[in-house]
């Protein structure tokens, strides 16, 4: 078994109204940032997972997404799996 750090990126499905994305886009334009196109606001779920292999971790996370983490009616998701590093700088305090 190995420890993995998994990140799930959940984003509104393209074509669906994304009021948060639109609000952020408007705010950026009003701050005079040039060239602002479409903006989309989603969610990041980071978890540590013990699994047989990176493939197994990915497969299990995919099932988590379909069952709970994302709603396929309104959201897309993608999964990033990497080995967990005990010394990673962004490790939450107390873990």
């Amino acid at each position: 078994m190995s420890d993995f750090e998994v990140e799930v990126r959940i984003t509104p499905r393209p074509g669906l109204l994304d009021p948060q994305g639109n609000a952020v886009a408007n705010a950026l334009r009003s701050l005079d940032f040039p060239g602002i196109g479409e903006v989309s606001v989603g969610r990041l779920v980071r978890l540590r997972l013990r699994a047989q292999s990176a493939d197994a971790a990915r497969e299990q996370t995919d099932r988590m997404c379909r069952k709970l983490l994302a709603n396929p009616v309104i959201e897309d998701f993608d999964i990033l799996v990497r080995p967990d590093r005990p010394d990673r700088p962004d490790r939450p305090v107390g873990s």
């Binding site: 948060q20 009616v73 309104i74």
Partner: peptide, 17 residues
């Protein structure tokens, strides 16, 4: 009910935020 799949579709953030 929508999340449970007893009804179709989903309810998202109000367009006005």
């Amino acid at each position: 009910l929508c999340e449970a799949g007893l009804l179709p579709g989903a309810l998202v953030r109000n367009a006005s935020l």
